[in-house]
């Protein structure tokens, strides 16, 4: 069943670990988290080790990513938001590199697991809530009461604001998860067409050209999606952090 499009999301235990009845095994997912972090760290570390005044190619890629995220955060959360820069940058790099690694055939996609994207989203929302209350106390709750709203509709608006706030971690995590999942399933299904059609002889080989072209095209699209979803995740993180920094709208 090599063509099963769901198979690529299976978690396989590599080193079984169980603590108090809870399964904490080192799995292929864990291995690819380690690989993601190692690849991203190694690239960022090695490319910037020269500290060249005139950057090399790799160094300018790292600097571009730095300035890209920095300007994104500064634009949406202002200079006060820059204290979250390491968080946003690591989130972006982690999601981006995990997405890219997932595009390599036979590699596991860390971000195609809802629990991973949900944990990352909760990290963001948790940071927003904790920092918001630490910095503004109960004033943080002004986030749910937009200024300039007539008193009559305030209860309705507050209800809407609360629902929208609570749906943030869900939309943030499901967006990334669903994009990566759907992309990989589509890719696998079209690639599966190629193998199963070409097993049918000459006509099948001729017929498999179309899904082959589709597979190539979707692979290209998936590279775009890999970047785009990381970007969207980072942008939304910046906007949510802005709420923590400036809750009064």
């Amino acid at each position: 069943m090599a063509t099963d499009p769901i198979h690529q999301f299976q978690i396989a235990k590599w080193i079984p670990i169980e603590v108090g009845g809870v399964d904490l095994s080192f799995t292929n997912a864990s291995a690819f988290m380690v690989a993601t972090v190692a690849a991203a760290s190694a690239f960022l570390f090695l490319s910037t080790s020269n500290r060249g005044l005139v950057p090399s190619r790799a160094q300018s890629v790292a600097e571009m990513a730095y300035e890209f995220i920095a300007s994104m955060l500064r634009d949406s959360a202002g200079n006060h938001g820059m204290k979250f820069f390491p968080l946003v940058f690591s989130l972006f790099m982690f999601v981006f590199v995990a997405n890219l690694l997932g595009l390599v055939p036979y590699f596991f996609t860390v971000t195609s697991q809802i629990i991973v994207t949900f944990a990352l989203a909760m990290l963001v929302i948790g940071t927003v809530i904790v920092y918001g209350f630490m910095k503004h106390g109960l004033g943080f709750l002004k986030l749910f009461v937009p200024s300039g709203v007539p008193a009559v509709v305030v209860p309705l608006v507050v209800a809407i604001e609360i629902v929208s706030f609570l749906s943030r971690p869900i939309s943030l995590s499901v967006r990334l998860f669903a994009n990566m999942l759907a992309g990989h399933i589509t890719l696998k299904v079209f690639a599966g067409f190629v193998t199963s059609l070409s097993a049918l002889g000459a006509v099948g080989v001729a017929g498999s050209i179309l899904p082959l072209i589709m597979t190539v095209a979707i692979t290209g699209l998936e590279f775009l999606v890999a970047f785009l979803q990381a970007y969207v995740f980072a942008v939304l993180t910046c906007m949510y952090l802005n709420d923590a920094v400036h809750p009064g709208h």
């Binding site: 904490l24 080192f26 864990s30 944990a119 990352l120």
Partner: peptide
């Protein structure tokens, strides 16, 4: 549990 743990460690 395992995914969250390893994500927490690696991230």
């Amino acid at each position: 549990a395992s995914q969250v743990l390893w994500l927490a460690i690696t991230f």
